[in-house]
């Protein structure tokens, strides 16, 4: 490990958080999607972060973060009575997406802040490396 590895570590973090922002955009875009059954209703997607481990002499070293899988929100699917809707089921119900706008917004702020701090780490490391390159001049 060392400063040269920071680009790899922070790069994976930037990638993971931009994936998270992607998912949030997808959730918000689909927040008004109406569906004909509970099974097909849109469920909010969530990234599942796991650390990237690299086995070394000293045990496992963390080499970044990855979105290992996508999970779906288990929040309850709301149904609404809309008998005139073309997608309504036999009882006249349609099923709404379980996207909570407030939750998505807070997740978005958190993701963009995490992205920013990783960019900051990258910038600082770049400065340090540039200064090291000019050592003794």
């Amino acid at each position: 490990m060392g400063i040269a590895n920071i680009y790899r570590i922070t790069g994976t973090a930037l990638n993971s958080h931009s994936k998270q922002l992607d998912l949030i955009a997808k959730n918000m875009a689909n927040s008004q999607v109406i569906s004909g059954s509970e099974a097909t209703a849109y469920r909010a997607l969530r990234p599942i972060f796991t650390p990237i481990l690299d086995a070394t002499m000293q045990g496992d070293e963390v080499m970044g973060v990855q979105v290992e899988a996508l999970g779906v929100s288990t929040a309850q699917i709301e149904k609404q009575r809309m008998p005139e809707h073309p997608l309504a089921d036999g009882n006249g119900y349609v099923y709404l997406a379980n996207v909570n706008m407030v939750e998505e917004m807070t997740n978005m702020i958190q993701a963009s802040r995490a992205y920013q701090s990783n960019v900051e780490v990258m910038n600082t490391s770049k400065d340090l490396m540039l200064r090291t390159l000019t050592l003794g001049q």
């Binding site: 920071i6 994976t12 993971s16 963390v62 490391s125």
Partner: peptide, 21 residues
């Protein structure tokens, strides 16, 4: 310098995993 560079990588790994459960 080597110690500082190792430590900065460790701290970067922490910051990268700030949202990892």
């Amino acid at each position: 310098l080597r110690y500082r560079s190792e430590r900065s990588a460790q701290l970067a790994a922490n910051i990268a995993n700030a949202a990892t459960p």
